[in-house]
Nucleic acid binder design. Structure first.
Length: 635
RNA sequence: GCUGAUGUAGCUCAGUUGGUAGAGCAGCUGAUUCGUAAUCAGCAGGUCGCCGGUUCAAGUCCGGCCAUCAGCUCCA
């Protein structure tokens, strides 16, 4: 007999060899039907797994992240099975579950067409309906290889060959289809009730661009049709707030064929950009920063000295001036170094916080461009902090605090990643250790949780990255804090210490918005174009009912303008409904409507974006309210 | 850069098996002067992404390039 401790704390005894599923059945019929997999002594297992000894068991359903994985992974097997039935010549690569669904990579002469996706979905429906048991089995290495060779699946053979010698090689079988797979899986194909194949795309075998490109089919699956529908609706809603679409509609920016990846800012977008910069300058002044500006074009020798030339020359734009090579800056730091060297520094000057809104250019591959999120020229809200070693932690904490306050202002949620020393890096082990520990220590003391990306740091130092989400859950790196002990060395930076000796400062590179362009892209999606009053390009639109009230409208417009409110007037001979419709489409926070009644009373009628019609009131009241929203940055 | 898809008026799109282009909105002109999401009429607007080829004839077919979109790779 074996003792099984269930998640609820109940301890039951069973005969050895009972399956997880049978135990689950014993708990409750209903639970077992929804169950995907179990957590046996902490590891995720299939419901068919036999329980051999005393253990702890938790039954997982679709609602658990691991249950979701098992569920979607089964959906991916069903897709692969359908494809092998319809197009037997297709070779299978890999097919995992992902955040929102699953994919499977295939090798096939001809790419999958949308019509074929529909056919595949049809075949999948059959497989689900046919209700196949999913069985797990294991094979010794040699037999496993032979099995896949006989099936004519070279990618599977390669996968097995790459497994460690002592690895358990497991297979999952549903009817005629057997796949190499670590599992876990559902008990049967029948549970995958609602699924949809989303798209086809190319993907390199094993993620390397040196390998063959395979056809990847993306899909998603849910236990209930309603959940699938909700997901599809969410995607449609997200599309409506895509910053590229809203950027055009709201006339914020333009991306033209004449400058791929080089965004044009239109008057409305420029207002937002300038307000963000005003806000940034105000915050940074309070936080003890000074501001500089360094040139966009600097000599190649400078970039060789900084190390950028070695690492990134293929992604730098260059030019020749008077026969000498120059490069357009991809980063602001070398300029910052040169500014530091303009004078001698005392330990009393440190930490020295030097900000720069710098326009940088980086050649991104054509396929990587994406609206304002990934561009070839952008403004960094950069700053370099020069300090002593014992100021590292407090300075980093200060920067984290600043970045956090900025993201909170906009209501963003973010996650943090710490990237450590990459292969192709410069500097000593000691310097890297000191820098990495400095970042870790500051994060720990600040109490921020973070994930570690081993080997993802910059060539000159480790970094903390702040990632913000866009409207469909993709995350984009915005803020970053990088600790650098190499540039000060390379540029021979010094300060004079108390005892008169020359010391080397430590440097932080940091950005909060990251790229202003990208930040604006995320802001557009975050607010779905409905910018809070303090950011809105137009804060109030004055709409006279008819041309008879033009003078009164103009009088009100002037008062708003004098109060420092961004107002517009719409004096066209259109009906009020039409003007309101347009103002709404422009996402203007406030409309002031004036007609006979208002003129007589000497008042205005207010319509707000959030509350709709608010009725008649004094203009002074409206102005006060809007000014309050602007200064307090609320709404 | 790679795989696939797409590119027609300022915008959103239609355009049969090849026979030299259409709608709605926006714009302009005129009429309308109106109380909370589209007033009516008229006018104007296109080297069908660019270059080349096939053909009596190309927006439609073929090739090359450019750009965009989805994903992969990359992202100091």
């Amino acid at each position: 007999m074996i003792k099984v401790t269930l998640k609820s704390g109940v301890v039951n005894e069973y005969a050895a060899g009972i399956t997880v599923y049978e135990i689950a059945l014993g708990i409750s019929e209903g639970l077992a039907r929804n169950a995907c997999c179990g957590r046996l002594n902490g590891s995720i297992v299939d419901l068919r797994t036999k329980v051999g000894s005393d253990c702890k068991l938790e039954i997982l359903t679709f609602d658990d992240p691991d249950g979701k994985k098992a569920f979607r992974h089964t959906a991916s097997h069903i897709m692969a099975q359908a494809i092998k039935r319809l197009y037997p010549e297709t070779k299978l690569a890999i097919g995992p579950s992902i955040d929102d669904g699953f994919y499977y990579d295939f090798d096939r002469e001809k790419p999958f067409s949308p019509e074929e996706l529909i056919e595949i979905e049809g075949e999948m429906k059959k497989i689900v309906k046919e209700n196949y048991d999913i069985e797990r089995s294991e094979l010794p290495r040699a037999e496993a290889i032979k099995f896949m060779e006989e099936k004519g699946e070279p990618y599977k053979v390669e996968l097995i060959l790459d497994l460690p010698e002592d690895a358990v090689i497991s297979f999952y079988k549903q009817a005629e289809f057997t796949d190499l797979c670590a599992g876990p899986h559902l008990m049967s194909t029948k549970y995958v009730k609602a699924f949809k194949l989303m798209s086809v795309a190319g993907a390199y075998w094993r993620g390397s661009e040196k390998n063959k490109m395979l056809s990847r089919i993306y899909g998603t699956a849910y236990p209930k049709a309603a959940d699938l529908e909700a997901y599809v609706t969410m995607l449609e809603e997200a599309k409506k707030r895509d910053h590229r679409k809203l950027g055009k509609e709201l006339k914020l920016f333009a991306l033209l064929d004449e400058g791929p990846g080089f965004p044009f800012f239109l008057p409305n977008g420029m207002i937002i950009k300038n307000i963000l910069l005003d806000y940034w300058r105000e915050l940074h002044k309070k936080a003890g920063y000074v501001e500089i500006s360094t040139p966009i074009i600097l000599s190649r020798t400078l970039w060789e000295n900084s190390g950028h030339w070695d690492h990134y020359k293929d992604n730098m734009y260059t030019t020749v001036i008077d026969g000498e090579d120059f490069a357009i800056k991809p980063m602001n730091c070398p300029g910052g170094m040169l500014v530091y060297k303009q004078e001698l520094h005392s330990y009393r000057d440190l930490p020295l916080r030097v900000g720069e809104i710098g326009l940088v250019h980086r050649h991104e591959k054509s396929g990587a461009l994406h609206g304002l999120m990934r561009v070839r020229c952008f403004n960094q809200d950069d700053a370099h902090i020069f300090m002593t070693e014992d100021q590292i932690k407090s300075e980093i904490k200060g920067v984290i605090d600043l970045i956090d306050s900025i993201y909170k202002q906009f209501g963003f949620k973010y996650h943090v990643e710490l990237s450590t020393r990459p292969e192709n890096s410069m500097g000593s082990d000691e310097a890297w250790e000191l820098a990495t520990n400095g970042l870790k220590g500051a994060l720990d003391e600040y109490g921020l949780s973070y994930v570690v990306n081993e080997g993802d740091g910059a060539f000159y130092g480790p970094k903390i990255d702040f990632h913000l989400e866009d409207s469909i859950g993709r995350t984009w790196q915005c803020g970053t804090i990088q600790l650098d002990m190499q540039m000060p060395e390379r540029f021979n930076l010094e300060y004079t210490d108390k005892d008169g000796s020359k010391k080397r400062p430590v440097m932080i590179h940091r950005v909060a918005f990251g790229s202003i362009e990208r930040f604006i892209g995320i802001l557009i999606e975050h607010f779905a174009g409905q910018f809070p009053t303090w950011l809105a390009p137009v804060q109030v639109k004055v709409l006279p009912i008819s041309e008879k009230f033009e003078d009164y409208a103009d009088e009100i417009y002037k008062k708003l303008d004098n109060a420092g409110i961004r107002a517009e007037k719409d004096l066209r001979a259109e009906k009020i409904g039409y003007k309101i419709r347009e103002a709404r489409n422009e996402r203007v926070p406030y409309m002031i409507i004036v007609g006979e009644k208002d003129l007589e009373a000497g008042k205005v009628s207010l319509r707000s974006r959030v509350n709709g019609e608010e009725g008649q009131m004094d203009l002074s009241e409206v102005i006060e309210r809007i000014l309050k929203e602007i200064t307090e940055k609320t709404n």
